[in-house]
Nucleic acid binder design. Structure first.
Length: 583
RNA sequence: GGGGAUGUAGCUCAAUCGGUUAGAGCACUGGACUGUCGAUCCAGAGGUUGCGGGUUCGAGUCCCGUCAUCCUCGCCA
């Protein structure tokens, strides 16, 4: 063991260690040179400890200590001593003690860093943080987040392992399937002109594992989708992927509720109680305009179509659906200009306009107030639960076109008007999704989730007559307006599977070509099975209250899908391209 | 593919209506200081105002183009 190796971490020493000799390793967070005494705050992943260098202890050592600068890496041997009375630092966990140095070894110098590292450092632009990610990750904030991420993974692995789940790895180099998102492709050198695809998820493999008898599977799986990035979307991301056999929907839901409770209590020390409320997809869309509403606050959508048709307002008369929101007490919060801005905001989500009414004691302040008779105004107040001071907002359009702007408005108003406690967590399930949806471009039915989703038993008879009414055995876990997990019970019977394929216009030959290996597998005694996938990155975002997904990924990509540290993606040698048959 | 925001010292920002030598805090360098802890005090260095073009007597500021980062619509389980 080299003489410089540490006996303790920088977050460890306490008054109990008084008098002991300890060796610490770490980075110089800060230095205070008094000409005589030199103080160093030494930092590592575990914390910070003050080290004191006294010229009377060792003159040579003191000379070296005076030259220490930020981010130098050192090893210090010293005696743990209580701080002088009144000199304790309550900001540090180790603030009751300090290390009186007897030996100092400079392990490495550091150039002046492009930004400061320590806990007191001010925010730095993300571009510069990403370019020097090795320094950014050294910061306490990032170390806390990655530590939390690790604990979520560990809790998940332990929880599932204790319940008999096997972690099985599936290939990264797979077959491209035309469904869903755009694939990342990898050229095959051995088979010129052919490509592998990186997995969008291990979906097909995990179903095949069920056929193979691995009745409880999980994987913390990297997934790839070549689509545009967002604050909460990266081209590669991580899912906790789970699949089980001989189970139904309630088993998966119960399993995930248990895991969610364990994560919440183990990591945040907060108790949540299952079962989480379940809402049907129809219900959520009608009341909130989205299948993953933030349920920490109310402000439900109110349908006033009938009433609207009676008014003299043409836009209201002619719209197939008129629905609105009541922003309680918000009339004074939005000026004309503010309302114009809300209108423009709704427009970004497809609304062709936004009707607004400010509620007074006996009237409305609104450009459309004149279209309401006294009686209609009364009915409107009643329908909206309107009281003086409220702001009413309406979107008049097709029912399905009004979902997005209303949901976006509700989400924005909830935040802007502080209608909920941002520290709260609200868990719920969305169930009874439609199995199919109509593709406006092709006129075909397409699978809403994926084409292997089991329809609800009581809807099987509708498959041929009214496919739009068939509900799926699908379930999404919603947390604070985010989809935190989503899954389905799978089709394991060939005849039902064939029926669904024909509905979405997949003939047998085509289906065989695309998913033949799965269809073949299902012929050999496939057990009833189903599963779920949890977005790990989004869970960490929720738990750590992060604004963007990059902060919970060690080496993320920019919005242009580049890595500022390594420069990926990059050009490659022409020779390499020739080998791959690409040039 | 569309819309928007930002880009000034190593970092975070300022610079009035287009006007003199582009400033501040932190960091950095040198010096002083034996109980500091985001040390203090003194002195100093540091700029292709993202890049290219244009308008103007004069551009950090206005116009055009371009690049980068972020947000967002479309896209995406």
């Amino acid at each position: 063991m080299p003489s410089w190796q540490r006996t303790h971490t920088c977050g460890e020493l306490r008054l109990d260690h008084e008098g002991e000799e300890a060796t610490l390793n770490g980075w110089v967070n800060n230095w205070r040179d008094h000409g005589g005494l030199v103080f160093i705050d030494l930092r590592d992943r575990y914390g910070m400890t003050q080290v004191v260098f006294d010229p009377n202890t060792d003159e040579e050592m003191h000379k070296v200590a005076r030259d220490l600068r930020s981010e130098y890496v050192i090893s210090v041997v010293g005696k743990v001593a209580p701080r002088l009375e009144g000199k304790r630092n309550p900001k540090l966990d180790t603030g009751d003690i300090e290390l009186k140095a007897t030996k100092l070894e400079l392990l490495n110098r550091s150039e002046v860093t492009p930004f400061e590292i320590g806990p007191e450092a001010e925010a730095t632009s993300e571009e510069i943080r990403l370019r020097h990610r090795y320094l950014d990750l050294r910061r306490p904030r990032m170390q806390r987040i990655l530590d939390l991420r690790h604990r979520v993974c560990k809790t998940t692995r332990d929880y599932l392992s204790e319940r008999g789940f096997l972690e099985v790895e599936t290939p990264m180099l797979g077959r491209s399937t035309p469904e869903g998102a755009r694939d990342f492709l990898v050229p095959s050198r051995v088979n010129p002109g052919d490509f592998y695809a990186l997995p969008q998820s291990p979906q097909l493999y995990k179903q095949i594992l069920m056929v193979a008898g691995y009745d409880r599977y999980f994987q913390i799986a990297r997934c790839f989708r070549d689509e545009d990035l967002r604050a909460n979307r990266q081209p590669e991301f991580t899912q906790v992927d789970i699949e089980m056999s001989f189970i139904d929907m309630d088993d998966i839901i119960g399993l995930i509720e248990g895991l969610a409770c364990e994560i919440m209590s183990g990591i945040l020390g907060r108790t949540i109680t299952p079962p989480f409320p379940r809402y049907t997809w129809d219900d959520l869309m009608r009341r909130y305009g989205v299948d993953r509403p933030d349920l920490r606050f109310g402000m439900e959508i109110v349908d006033i179509t009938g009433l609207a048709h009676e008014t003299d307002f043409k836009v209201f008369q002619q719209a197939p659906s008129v629905r609105g929101l009541n922003a309680k007490g918000a009339a004074d919060r939005y000026s004309r200009k503010g309302l114009d801005e809300l209108t423009a905001f709704a427009g970004e989500y497809g609304a062709r306009g936004l009707a607004w009414l400010k509620v007074d004691a006996n009237s409305f302040t609104s450009p459309i107030a004149k279209f309401f008779s006294e009686e209609q105004a009364g009915k409107l107040r009643e329908a909206m639960g309107a009281e003086p001071g409220d702001l009413l907002l309406f979107v008049a359009d097709r029912y399905d076109a009004s979902h997005a702007p209303l949901a976006a408005l509700r989400h924005r108003l909830g935040k802007e008007l502080e209608l909920y406690n941002p520290d709260d967590f609200h868990f719920s399930w969305c169930v009874d999704f439609p199995l199919l949806e109509h593709d406006a471009d092709t006129g075909h039915w397409v699978a809403r989730h994926h084409p292997f989703t089991m329809p609800l038993e009581e809807d099987w008879h509708l498959l041929e007559t009214e496919p739009e009414k068939v509900r799926a055995k699908a379930y999404d876990l919603i947390v604070n307006g985010e989809e935190a997990a989503g899954g389905t019970i799978r089709l394991h019977k060939p005849d039902l599977q064939a029926k669904v394929f024909s509905l979405i216009g997949l003939d047998e030959e085509e289906a065989q070509k695309r998913f033949g290996f799965l269809l073949d597998a299902l012929k050999y005694g496939a057990p009833p099975h189903g599963g779920i996938a949890m977005g790990l990155d989004r869970w960490v975002m929720l738990l750590a209250k992060l604004e963007n997904i990059r902060d919970c990924i060690a080496f993320p990509k920019t919005q242009r899908a580049t890595d500022l540290m390594t420069g990926a993606p990059s050009e490659v040698e022409p020779r390499h391209l020739r080998e791959l048959g690409l040039k």
